[in-house]
Write a protein that binds this DNA or RNA. Structure first.
Lengths: 141, 141
DNA sequence: TAGATACTTGACTATTTTAGTCGGGTTTAT
DNA sequence: ATAAACCCGACTAAAATAGTCAAGTATCTA
């Protein structure tokens, strides 16, 4: 059970972006250099963040990306959702109405995984980008 | 971010086993049939569970597996640990003492992932096999 | 208006992980 | 003796991941 790089990178990049946000658009090149993430990969990630209206783009020279909402209003859930980093614990419940594995009853552990998903998602819904930025500037003093 | 089948199967199989535990050893063949898990794969999984002393084996005809502890004392953590289903959020912290990515400072989101890991592990430490078995027999009435 | 910077898009690919399979054992109750 | 079960290690197909690569388009600045 692990978080993928795509999700981690998305969060790292947005924290980086949020810190410079109010001054100028931030270019992916800068983020790439500061965070050590492949530029090409960042482009894929930001394309998704843009589609979900988490960031706005400014094209051309001196362009870059800007947050599209207040940092406080961007929750981890939104970020993960944007880049398709979902919490998946079971394969069940996609086809039949209640059952798993095609069987009529739920599998023995179905409720457990549901609980787990909720537990994790709670965490993601509480954390905002602002929390993360603050967490970081505090530490630096 | 998803749970692998190995982890899920281990838990499913143990819940199944726990329900018949006090009568006779339970054969993997039976678990395989009831839970729809490949027998060969189950053997791999139980070999690990045995190494970590979560189950005991009874060889020969009419053999099978038995729990090695009370269901109450087997926590999800123990099961996941046994089958190498770990919660991994970051790659950092393996080499250098404090830093990530070889840099001297922690990455911007390091503490976040640590928090997340703890949050998830809390969940796993609280749930015992007994909880799961009860959860299941209640539902059946 | 040329050139550089930066976003945009889509296809391609190497690597790793996962979820098994397969083929041989050994042990023990009946 | 033999069938049921555990035991063990090597192998493999498929999927997902983490990128790379190539060819654009838009915009600012000199």
């Amino acid at each position: 059970m692990k978080l993928t790089s795509k999700g981690r990178y998305a969060v790292m990049a947005l924290v980086d972006l949020a810190r410079f946000n109010n001054i100028n658009p931030v270019s992916l090149r800068d983020i790439s250099l500061r965070q050590g993430i492949s530029l090409d990969y960042l482009e894929q990630i930001f394309s998704k963040l843009k589609k979900k209206e988490i960031v706005q783009s400014v094209r051309g020279n001196q362009g870059g990306y800007v947050l599209n909402k207040k940092a406080k209003e961007i929750k981890l859930t939104n970020i993960f959702d944007a880049v398709d980093e979902k919490v998946k614990t079971v394969q069940c419940k996609k086809d039949s109405k209640k059952g798993c594995n095609g069987k009529p009853t739920k599998c023995l552990t179905h409720n457990l995984w549901d609980e787990l998903e909720n537990h994790i998602n709670d965490f993601f819904e509480k954390k905002s980008l602002e929390d993360l930025v603050q967490d970081n500037t505090e530490r630096r003093i």
